[in-house]
Computed example of a mutant assay.
Amino acid sequence: MQPAEKFSFECCQETADWLLARTTQRPRIAIICGSGLGPLADSLKNQESFKYTDIPHFPRSTVAGHDGHLIFGELKGKQCVCMKGRFHMYEGYPLWKVTFPIRVFKLLGIEMLMVTNAAGALSDSYNIGDLMIIQDHINLLGLTGENPLRGPNEEWFGPRFPALSDAYDRKIRTLAMETARRLGYASFVKEGVYCMVAGPNFESVAEARLLHLLGADVVGMSTAAEVVVARHCGLRVFGLSLITNKVTKDYDAKESVDHHGVLEVSRRRASMLQMLLTEVVGSLDSDTSSCGQKETETSYQNGA
């Protein structure tokens, strides 16, 4: 089967129909859980879970910390669907397959995508355990020709040339920062730029210096491609990174990073990321079409 066939509307529809026939839940918010951040999906109420291996056309998740389940349920009274584990280019998947679930979400009726990830800090002002609200991204793969929209454009989903100047929703970012202050998280919640690289190796010193010079605050191996497809589909996007390590920019540094350490930091800090994202979801209007100021203020007063 050629990539263009699997990239088709028909394949996405087949997967969406399979899921819709097996659950009565009709979520409007989709959440992708990054490395070690699966407990967020576990917190959903009234869960219905599907293994990736059972879902038509879904890839398999092969990385430690990515469980491989699609979970429907409720978060703060709002119906959501969570990917407990994502897919990566370094697993051998082309980007059109990495991002396949995003188009399925669109056909399920999803209006908003929330992406989380574990990332390494390039900025010296970031510390391990910080949370970063993604303001923008550098899609390094896209700049070198590896774009998930490469190939025939599926007009049903979006235009040939989508704009990304507003990729990460400004209103939700503002709401998230306000929520962080209310929770007492202001000292370790920042806003910055995420850079996506292919992996699976961590960055060399020279590469880290280059990415920082380009304007990236953190770096990881996911997210940007998913956001490109989400915006092509017209979904609103919110992104949140958990800083699990500092990327070495000094040849004399003795520290080095490994995936086990990334998962350990994720495990220890995941509860705070989960709390922030949960409170943001709870403060959104029920139809996710706007962040209503009146409802948000009421939620704050009630401690929701």
Score class of each variant (00 low, 15 high):
1 M>R: 13
3 P>L: 11
7 F>I: 09
10 E>T: 07
15 T>P: 02
20 L>P: 07
20 L>K: 15
21 A>R: 12
22 R>Q: 04
26 R>K: 15
40 L>Y: 12
44 L>R: 04
45 K>W: 07
49 S>Q: 03
55 I>A: 02
56 P>R: 01
59 P>G: 04
69 H>I: 13
71 I>G: 01
78 K>Q: 15
79 Q>T: 15
81 V>H: 06
86 R>L: 06
86 R>G: 06
89 M>E: 08
92 G>K: 06
93 Y>N: 08
101 P>C: 11
109 G>T: 07
116 T>R: 02
116 T>L: 05
117 N>S: 09
124 D>T: 00
124 D>Y: 03
125 S>P: 04
137 H>S: 09
137 H>C: 01
149 L>N: 01
150 R>T: 12
156 W>D: 11
157 F>K: 08
158 G>N: 07
160 R>F: 10
166 D>S: 01
170 R>V: 09
175 L>S: 02
176 A>C: 05
181 R>C: 11
181 R>D: 15
183 L>W: 07
185 Y>D: 12
195 C>K: 08
207 E>L: 03
208 A>C: 06
216 A>D: 00
224 A>T: 06
229 V>E: 01
231 R>S: 00
237 V>S: 02
243 I>S: 03
259 H>I: 15
263 L>E: 07
268 R>Q: 15
270 A>I: 10
273 L>M: 12
279 E>Q: 15
283 S>P: 02
296 T>Q: 13
299 S>T: 00
303 G>F: 10
